[in-house]
Design a protein around this nucleic acid. Structure first.
Lengths: 231, 231
DNA sequence: TTCTTGTCACCTAGGTGTTAATAT
DNA sequence: ATATTAACACCTAGGTGACAAGAA
């Protein structure tokens, strides 16, 4: 069995509609996909990998903020369907770089996919995951048992198991659309600390699951969505 | 077979008498021990590891600079034997973190031991290599074939091969003794760039094996050994 | 006196959202 | 109008030798 790490944070993002940046050079996910694994054969070899499947066949589009009601602009911001999905991207997979390794190795600590990067470059040759911007994806986690038998291909069907956590769904974007997502990223990702203007002690030290979802950071946003959309 | 990378640099250090810093927290080696490997079975599993053996049973001591001939002090600086070696340290080994891996994996790129750290802390529990300061050591590189046979212990003797490069010998120190070593480290280690005061373009771009061994860096040293030893 | 330790400024290396410019 | 790109300031994380203070 598999347990998703940082589930509380994933839930917080998912509630707002998680967005993940894709760039030409490749961008990591945040939150990082991390799991604890139980019940492996400690002595057997396993490959761990991830892939990403489209949640639906829709292309999304950000609805324009209403005007002239700037202070409610945030509430009017939402995702609209903008047509059929673009042609599917190359369905790449990301092997955890420690693969293959023994079950004991995988189970003795949290497995982190922090080397995984997302790109929108269809010609990428860095082995990154290729996604279409403005499309929704569901990350999937696969565990493959390395069968020592000579004719192992025959048993491929029974030698892997797939785990899906719906709270890790996200929309791929080239720039954040929902400013509440931006603020939650800034508040929770250590690498974005430079953009925080709230109490530096609030996160993550004092963060408990169930606490208010970082409204202080949002309230003091440098770029509130409530700024006039017109020019 | 195995080929030592950066051999020209190792030779340059070895000619001066290589020194490696040891600290309580652990210090990386510079140059880093890196090799290219040939002739493995691409499909077989191998473990790669290093250990360090005392070159002799001597303890060393830095001779005091002669005086009052400061400008020749550098030439008078040398290592003296200071008695029998201290009791041997725990003979730890360092497994390359990618171990075990297939021969194909090891051979397709340079294998770098840049995670290996040296310490003088006998109680170290970070798995670092423990060495006695002021003692000389010879790094050794071992390739272990992971035998798939059930009774593989019986064949342990024939399942590993050891490689020794004498130009990688060094003296463990807590502070550099030979200022020419210090200057060569500063000139060639990117992380010490802050201490360079020579032409930043000289190294490593314009460095060719056979070129003069960085005398410009030495000449402009901030702490020339030729400074008076008296106070 | 010689050797060791801890702190420091200064680097490498690379992960953030911002912003202005550009592309569609 | 909307979406993408590239340069950028500001971080995290950690590898350097210098230096002053301490230990043996």
């Amino acid at each position: 069995s598999v347990q998703l790490e940082m589930k509380a944070l994933w839930d917080e993002f998912n509630q707002l509609g998680t967005e993940m940046i894709v760039t030409k050079a490749g961008r990591r996910m945040f939150p990082t996909f991390q799991v604890k694994i139980f019940g492996m054969d400690p002595m057997a070899d396993y490959m761990l990998l991830m892939d990403f499947v489209p949640v639906d066949d829709k292309r999304y589009r950000q609805v324009t903020n209403t005007w002239p009601v700037p202070r409610y602009a945030f509430h009017s911001s939402s995702w609209l369907v903008a047509g059929k999905a673009d042609p599917a991207t190359p369905g790449r997979v990301h092997y955890h770089p420690d693969s293959p390794a023994k079950g004991a190795q995988w189970m003795k600590q949290i497995v982190s996919f922090d080397k995984l990067k997302l790109t929108n470059n269809l010609l990428d040759d860095n082995g990154h995951i290729i996604l279409n911007s403005m499309h929704r994806y569901q990350p999937r986690f696969h565990v493959v048992y390395v069968d020592p038998r000579k004719d192992s291909e025959k048993y491929a069907e029974e030698n892997f198991k797939t785990f899906v956590f719906e709270e890790t769904r996200f929309t791929a974007v080239t720039a954040y659309q929902n400013h509440r997502i931006t603020q939650l990223k800034i508040a929770s990702n250590p690498f974005a600390k430079g953009f925080r203007d709230c109490d530096p002690e609030d996160w993550p030290r004092n963060h408990r699951p169930g606490a208010l979802p970082l409204m202080s950071a949002f309230a003091r946003s440098r770029n509130p969505v409530s700024s006039p959309a017109h020019q």
